[in-house]
Nucleic acid binder design. Structure first.
Lengths: 216, 216, 216, 216
DNA sequence: AATGAATGAGCATTCATTCAT
DNA sequence: TATGAATGAATGCTCATTCAT
């Protein structure tokens, strides 16, 4: 089941002093974009709110009209980040009927979105612990939607008897985990392997584990 | 090729004001142990040097006689952490002649050491970015030793014609990456899967990718 | 001698951008009322101009059309506050001829107005220091009118030979001071004494000091 | 019953990062003295922690080694302030046997201590609301000790049949309240009345209310 | 060698006031 | 007249590091 949530109305969770919703949405996009661009390079802790304000070309005071704390920016980043992933995967695979094909396309999309958002992925993996408890909870829920989307495909495959998957939940989790391999290990891989080589490797090994009869 | 380095003389990279090497080694072990015990729970940034001094039962001044900055502690943590991994894997597999058996035992050891050091693994993954550039370089070298140890086994397997592995470097990297799945995704997995289930799953799927004829 | 000043034209001291006097008076009353309602609960410093604008249901910009600074509101509060006291006491006692009777009624009124404005009294006592020097001067003048009203009664009493009061100015001052005892010490008194007990106590002791022959 | 608490061990309630108790006591006295000297002139809110550090000739960081928040300084001020009052009154009257004499001396001491601490009294009356709830509670307890000391004397007087006091608690409260008249109304009184005139006036009127047979 | 008090630059956040629309 | 978004100086507080003893 696909949650029908857009980015704009989701961010409603974060309080603001501004009254015009349209301005909030626009400005927030700018601010988060600026925040992420700084976060990516300096990390959450080393980035100061001044850095972000400067990057977003707003004053300190104005920044705090749109968010209520530095924490909020982290939350907003994750929200957008995970939704970007999710919506991309869903939009690309939604109309595919054959579950095996669907899995292949979904996984490939996962890999490609990851590579297109390398810095964000890296940042996302390392800074989650800095989120406030209740914010983290929300983000984990969203992340779970993505895992479940894959689990759903795997369940379909099993149901159709194409393949016998032991535990679709565990497999779905590992699939999603495996998709960030190329990014999280980029220091070790860069120089030796191209993005395409990594994608091919993962498509061949990880999907074959699930669909043994797969012909690449 | 196994680098023959022990913990003590490695830490020589980190400057100190103390002159008796023996005292340095002992005290440093205490300090790092204390630092890690705090880091694990509070993270690097939220841990203050005061916290560490307190946990190590030394004065602030004394602490700075053994290290020259908070960064050093991070480096020393990684050094010990990665060496622990490496030495464990090597010591357990060093005498195994059959490369397939060796791979199995090495991978299993990797998984088990990981689970025995969950907090350290988590900490290690998320705080690497806080290390000074030149320290990071050193740590990546050490990490590379571990990857190469696996690559060596895979090369042996290929050489013996048991299995045809396309790119042993890439596979070695992914193997080591996969081994932390259970820990890095523990928020999603805890509650649903036991450590044993996760280890079994990974042994079955990841090793089978490499050794298709494997009978669990 | 009673100054004949109404609330509206007094506030003329505070500058405004608005030109129609009628609108000023109306809107200002709303704004001050709102400001006081917030001030009472949060204190002057912890109340933000935003709070006041919200409570007064006007925009920030509009608020600043009617006042020129947050200070002004403090002044306007005191102005209304002290006039309320004064006018009440005067209106109730103006027609009483017998000065002893007049004193009794005036003092009792003082006590009762105080208890009906507990929060305002408390606020008034503790925030006066935040007023601008020249505003404070004006307020002290108004306050002096009240003291002098009591002094006038005491002078009459002395003139009529009913009682010999050493220094009517000092006595008048202390009388007015004594009247806020129940409010300024309410943390210590609440729970043990009712408003009526306190009023009775003060009527008995303080008036008897002045009029020894008094029969309650 | 006189609580046996000195200033030094009382301040133990406020946390510190310093380990040597002697240093804490000394430095804190300096800091509070400096804080009060600034508070008196600028009020609590308008005084910045920087102001205080400067006046105390310590760095910001050092200041925060001795207190844990600006609030603490307010608490420490009140603690010392109220104890100064209390200890002075008790030490001067402790050995007086005759309760009437005791009351006279105690009240006079109250008046004189007040006048010797004018700024502190004024500050104390107006800033109590800024104290944290639990701190305020402690201070009110201390204040209550002073009230009760007077109540004790009044009870003795009543017990000895010298005078019939209706409600010694209420009278004690009002006595203590009356003692700050000269200070809290100094704007109105200064210029017209000397400290001595005010003290005489209060001694004559307030004590006579309690001890009608009193001959000044 | 050891201690712990001192330093001060740096940070997140607030808020009275202004001004373009 | 009315609106509310924008400003930025100012504030309370932290903490890695130093240094006198």
């Amino acid at each position: 089941m696909v949650r029908k949530i857009g980015i704009n109305n989701l961010t409603a969770r974060v309080p603001t002093k501004i009254k015009t919703q349209e301005i909030i949405d626009d400005k927030r996009k700018d601010i988060i974009k600026a925040a992420v661009s700084v976060f990516k390079h300096k990390g959450y802790h080393k980035t100061t709110v001044r850095d972000i304000a400067k990057a977003a070309k707003v004053s300190m005071g104005s920044l705090y009209d749109y968010i209520s704390s530095k924490d909020d920016l982290l939350y907003l980043f994750y929200e957008i980040f995970i939704l970007t992933y999710y919506q991309k995967v869903v939009s690309v695979t939604n109309n595919i009927k054959d579950p095996e094909k669907k899995l292949k396309v979904a996984y490939k999309t996962l890999l490609e979105v990851g590579f297109s958002l390398e810095d964000e992925v890296l940042f996302g993996w390392t800074e989650a612990k800095n989120m406030k408890k209740n914010y983290l909870k929300e983000i984990l829920k969203l992340e779970n939607d993505l895992i479940n989307y894959f689990k759903g495909i795997l369940d379909e495959i099993t149901a159709h008897g194409h393949s016998k998957i032991h535990d679709t939940g565990l497999v779905a989790n590992f699939l999603v985990y495996s998709a960030t391999f190329g990014i999280l290990r980029r220091w070790a891989l860069k120089g030796s392997y191209t993005k395409e080589q990594i994608i091919n490797y993962l498509m061949n090994t990880q999907l074959k584990t699930i669909l043994p009869h797969l012909v690449p």
